[in-house]
Computed example of a mutant assay.
Amino acid sequence: MKQIWLSVCLLTGSLLFSNIAPAQSESGALLQQMSSASRSLNYEIAYISITKQGIESLRYRHAVIDNQPLGQLLHMDGPRREVLQRGGGISYFEPGLEPFTLSGDHIVDVLPSIVYADFNYLAKYYDFISVGQTRIADRPSEVFRIVARDGSRYSYVVWMDAETKLPLRVDLLDRDGETLEQYRVISFVVGEQVKNVMQGLLKANLPPLLSLPAAENIQLGWRTGWLPAGVNEVARNRRKLPNVDEPVESRLYSDGLFSFSVNVTPSGSSVSQQFYRQGRRTIQTEIRHGNEITIVGELPPSTAKRIADSISFKVSPP
């Protein structure tokens, strides 16, 4: 009897897996098309960005001319704030600041980070769930949920235009299903007319590229014992802050979708633990062994605390 029951369980599990795996693969392929469309099409979108701090109205234009990506992000309200992309340079124009250019392959603040993700990599750690079809911005759209399998991160709901594959709405949700941020397209245009409008950017006089100091191979006296699945260290540094005697040691981590930093500095404070969350960003601080540990980034508070609690201090780090 036990052998029959075991056989039934194994057969049922294999049938479920065979149904889920193709669906996961198909959804991942469609989401990858969204990323490709956002980088390759000529389009203009007007959209609103809704966060806990308020609502912003923005316009974004994107074109590819002679294999060179061009972009323009314009804040539609208040003082004129503009970001331009030409090739691998991103130029920033802010009131009261000297314009500058940084290296980059896309304007970071224009589309939600999920749009630029590597879905082949994320498929190892996230589930891509097709929710169905609906209409958004007067366009037929396909809806997907992106959820971390280990439950340690926020999740996304994406509305993708069925024809162009461009994202029309993206909601960032916490683990209770509350919306933390929303990106929502109001209107958009796709075609050669956008390419014609962007031609002038090819000859525009943009500010020079800022040179950043080269990364150093810094040895730190501590390390994290636990990280969410798929998260990797992408940078580390040791730096002095104004009015702070001791340097701050930092590691930056990312899974390609969410990022956070772990910061450690000697402390004389007696406050054992503090926590603050604003929208997607959490700040978790605790004092241990005379060191102040601060987690800052796109994490649920419970995940930030677990990371902070896992940190161990070593005299000779690997």
Rank of each mutant, 00 (worst) to 15 (best):
G89S: 13
P69I: 10
I55E: 14
G96M: 06
V83F: 03
S36G: 00
L74I: 15
P112C: 08
V108W: 00
Q53P: 01
V115I: 12
G89V: 10
F119Q: 02
G87T: 07
R86N: 09
R81F: 00
M76V: 13
G96N: 11
I55D: 01
R59G: 12
T51S: 15
D77H: 11
P112W: 10
Y43K: 10
L97P: 00
L30I: 11
Y60D: 03
L74P: 02
Q53G: 11
H62Q: 12
A117G: 05
S91F: 04
I48W: 00
N67Y: 06
V115S: 10
Q85A: 10
P99M: 08
F119C: 04
F119A: 01
D77Q: 15
I114T: 11
P99S: 08
G71P: 08
D118M: 11
Y116I: 04
L84T: 12
S113N: 11
T51L: 01
Y116R: 11
L31R: 11
F100W: 14
A46I: 07
Y116Q: 13
L74T: 15
R81P: 00
V83S: 05
E56Y: 03
K52P: 06
S113D: 13
A63N: 01
G96E: 09
Q72I: 10
V110S: 15
A117K: 08
L102V: 15
N42H: 13
G71Y: 11
Q33P: 02
D66T: 07
R80I: 13
T101R: 09
N42C: 02
F93H: 11
H75G: 05
Y47K: 07
L102S: 03
L58Y: 09
L70I: 13
S91Q: 06
Q68L: 13
V110M: 08
E98H: 04
Y43R: 06
G96D: 09
P99H: 04
G88I: 04
I48E: 11
G87R: 06
H106R: 14
R80A: 14
E44H: 06
N120Q: 14
E94K: 03
E94G: 00
E56F: 02
G88W: 03
H62R: 10
Q53W: 05
M34W: 09
S40I: 01
L30G: 00
P69D: 05
S35H: 14
L73F: 11
L73G: 12
L31A: 10
A117S: 12
V115F: 09
Q32I: 01
L30M: 14
A117M: 07
Y116K: 09
V110L: 07
R81E: 13
Y60C: 06
A37Q: 05
P95R: 09
D66P: 02
Q33R: 14
V108L: 12
I90D: 05
E98P: 00
S38P: 06
I65D: 02
L102F: 05
G89F: 02
S49G: 03
V64S: 08
L97N: 01
S49R: 13
